[in-house]
């Protein structure tokens, strides 16, 4: 059965790589994001690589009115509908501390926007009894820390949401993969100093594809982040609160 991926946040570096790999496997892609001109180029690229469907729809995680056309389009595409969510935003924590109104946008981009979209999409997938949801969270969601705790808290909320969604959709044969990437070599991290275990986007995309195939529930990518975060999560709060990591 043909599979088509609805890709939210399709202009991000990792999403672009994911769309490209999906196209190479013969899957269709519906690219959703804000920069329509850029997504048109990615859609052309996917079509050249073998995607039978390669479309572009404007999407803004902060504007629920933009969700409707995508949901309508999804309902009309035959075969398996899958979704991959790459949206999120991470302004520097100092900026947020200076202007708390930024918090709403971070939460909408990283958690409530995608959660609202996926909740609306879920019935279509349940009805077809197939498909996969790839939800990209972050290792930052595993524990709130000094450097990015608003972003981390939004991703933590998204992780909990995905876990519940997995519990619900598993009953209908729909699988949900929670992806927790560490630092990835993208436009967002370019030029930032001293990033640990910086991974190329192709590596992360490859890991995500493997996790989809194997129906993995939670993926840390690169794998080194699993032991790292396991240890970080074990540090007692009494000590953690004094740490700078």
């Amino acid at each position: 059965m043909p599979q088509t991926w609805i890709i939210l946040g399709a202009t991000s570096t990792i999403a672009r790589g994911f769309a490209r790999d999906a196209a190479g496997r013969g899957d269709g892609v519906v690219l959703a994001g804000r920069d329509v001109d850029d997504m048109k180029a990615t859609a052309a690229d996917c079509a050249a690589r073998g995607a039978p469907v390669a479309e572009v729809i404007a999407f803004d995680a902060r504007d629920p009115a933009s969700f409707e056309p995508i949901l309508k389009r999804a309902a009309k595409i035959e075969g398996t509908i899958s979704a991959a969510v790459f949206v999120g935003s991470m302004p520097p924590q100092e900026d947020i501390d200076a202007d708390p109104s930024l918090i709403d946008g971070v939460i909408a981009d990283s958690y409530t926007g995608p959660a609202r979209f996926l909740t609306a999409l879920a019935p279509i997938m349940e009805e077809r009894r197939s498909g996969t949801i790839v939800g990209v969270g972050s290792v930052a969601g595993d524990r709130g820390r000094l450097g990015n705790y608003v972003y981390g808290s939004a991703k933590a909320g998204f992780h909990a949401y995905l876990s519940g969604l997995r519990n619900r959709l598993g009953r209908s044969g729909v699988h949900v993969v929670t992806v927790k990437p560490g630092t990835v070599d993208t436009a967002m991290t370019w030029g930032l100093d001293k990033l640990p275990f910086l991974a190329p986007p192709e590596k992360v995309v490859g890991d995500i594809m493997k996790a989809v195939d194997k129906k993995k529930d939670v993926l840390y990518t690169p794998f080194i982040w699993w032991p790292v975060m396991t240890i970080i999560k074990l540090i007692p709060e009494r000590i953690f609160k004094k740490m700078q990591i």
Partner: peptide
């Protein structure tokens, strides 16, 4: 060194 990903950038 800059590494743009989009024509607009």
């Amino acid at each position: 060194v800059a590494r743009p990903e989009r024509a607009s950038a």
